[in-house]
Amino acid sequence: MYEIRFHGRGGQGGRMAAEAYALAAFLEGKYAVSFPIFGAERRGAPVKAFTRVDDKKIRIKTQIYQPDYVVVLDETLIETEDVLEGLKEDGMVIINTPKKPEEVELSKPVKCATVDATSIALEILGRPITNTAILGAIAKATGKVSIESIEKAIIEKFGARLGKEAGEKNALAARTAYEKTLVGVAKGGKEFKPRKKWLPTVEEMPIGGAIATMQTEAGLVGIGSFIENKTGDWRTFKPIINKEKCIGCKLCWFYCPEGCISMQDGKATVNYDYCKGCGICANECPTKAIKMEREVRA
């Protein structure tokens, strides 16, 4: 048996990727199960999904804590958490990033495959949904399923939901990623500080209990404390404001769901710590002073 853990963001299709991979393995005569884990996550928040594949019936139903493979659909996730947690000694990580495996920095040096799935998805699908492209990379990196089975599974699974043409396009995204995937060894040494949990837990709170705003070892809690949650790493595109064209009408300031636009010297300014890149500001700007550009991360 081998186990795969997918790290993605809500809406990127981590769950669909896990399911499509299971289907591909099934098409090759294996037993396979897949399931996601999510609580109240919105689109953009980190989520996980799991796939198990075996030659015999699979009885185990738990989450995967010691995966053979870790798949990361969004490279910003490797900055905020140790995706290698529990990965087996000879395990491998497959990451969506434009970097080469040798340039990726993780908590320890491990076998690593990389592919720029976001660019492939944007080019072929026109949307930064990377779940099908990454499947091609998994096939290449692990050699556990053939790319043909992956294509078949995608056409079946995505075709049923989005129509035949979309199914085929997604299969092409997987094939392209398959051909572009690089395999190597990642750098180790990156340190992650385990985040302290804030106590009491919600179960331990007395009925009618209230939380005051306070600075704790686990960070700020209580009223207004979401300000410490930087949502800027959710975005694929970022708004660039042309100050010459900005007339200071404040429409973007009003419409921005994040409240991350402020007015400085009468011109709109974006706080990229929070901007999720929805593009409403660019779409609504009456003078077209805002342009959405692909986010390039260092």
């Binding site: 809500g10 809406g11 996550e41 919105r42 689109r43 953009g44 928040a45 207004g224 979401f226 300000i227 410490e228 949650n229 930087k230 949502t231 959710w234 975005r235 769901p257 994040e258 409240g259 991350c260 706080n271 710590d273 929070y274 999720k276 890149g277 929805c278 593009g279 409403i280």
Partner: peptide, 9 residues
């Protein structure tokens, strides 16, 4: 405040 976790858009 910003930092809330609503879907983009």
């Amino acid at each position: 405040t910003p930092g809330h976790t609503a879907c983009a858009g």
